[in-house]
Design a protein around this nucleic acid. Structure first.
Lengths: 136, 136
DNA sequence: TCCATTTTTATAATGGTTACAAATAAGTAA
DNA sequence: TTACTTATTTGTAACCATTATAAAAATGGA
């Protein structure tokens, strides 16, 4: 089991306290948070935390491939710790984001119409089980 | 062949000049423009055009299902006139957006893990044919 | 310890989008 | 047509996520 610090070192990122806490948060709580959500969640624990640090850190992690940036159905970016391939579903009622592990088409390294594919996202939208059951 | 005005009327939208021009632009130039691109493109023809009108109109059209809002790999929204199902590919070098008509999984009205799917987007990212050929 | 480099921070700036309220255009009844 | 109501457009300001910038703090090596 790989520690947070190991993950950072493997990616040539100095394991500062802020970076550790941010990655830890994303690895433990798979809630696809935005930068602001992460900031809010950690502000108590790290009172001096700056939102700029959160943005910088997320940018670094994403560039290194540690995190995936999700562009769903709004103009704020959600982040997730990279695990096995899956697709995303967002509920239009409660806005919750779900990971789905249904079988789906994979496009990695495909060449389509001559274009080289390096990354792909499958984003679904609808009403989640929970909201369906609540009636209405 | 359905006219722009007919499309608007069918959707209970009064066919004002601004609305006609905006829909016409999206129907004719399938370039997946942003609100600002549309504004820039029409500003000469409609000198009094306001950016707010463009935003309002795009919102109306999207709510009626005439347009599709695309959330690709940035936080600006791109729009397209709804045609046959297809998927999107954006080049990371030139940022151009391509429509791909490859076969792909369809999810409409599926029920996955109890969630009702009403809309889905497949977004690919990579290097387009054109940029590949330019070498490097 | 001293110094150079990295990291964090606060502040201001940017850019896409929305809120708001006034101005204009359109639609309807008399 | 007029008078009046409603719909649409417009300009301005506000909003909110994100980025730029430069100073402050922390870190690491000689």
């Amino acid at each position: 089991m790989q520690s947070i610090i190991d993950i950072l070192k493997e990616n040539d990122i100095a394991p500062s306290m802020q970076r550790i806490k941010i990655l830890e948060y994303l690895k433990n709580y798979k809630t696809h948070p935005t930068a602001d959500m992460i900031y809010q969640a950690l502000a108590d624990e790290i009172p001096t935390l700056s939102k700029t640090t959160v943005y910088n850190t997320l940018k670094t992690f994403t560039e290194k491939g540690i995190l995936m940036a999700l562009y769903l159905f709004s103009n704020e970016v959600h982040y997730e710790y990279n695990t096995q391939p899956h697709i995303h579903f967002q509920c239009t009622k409660c806005n919750k984001i779900y990971d789905l592990y249904q079988s789906f088409d994979h496009y990695n390294n495909d060449l389509i119409d001559g274009h080289k594919i390096t990354e792909y996202h499958i984003n679904l939208k609808g009403i989640c089980k929970n909201c369906l059951e609540k009636g209405k």
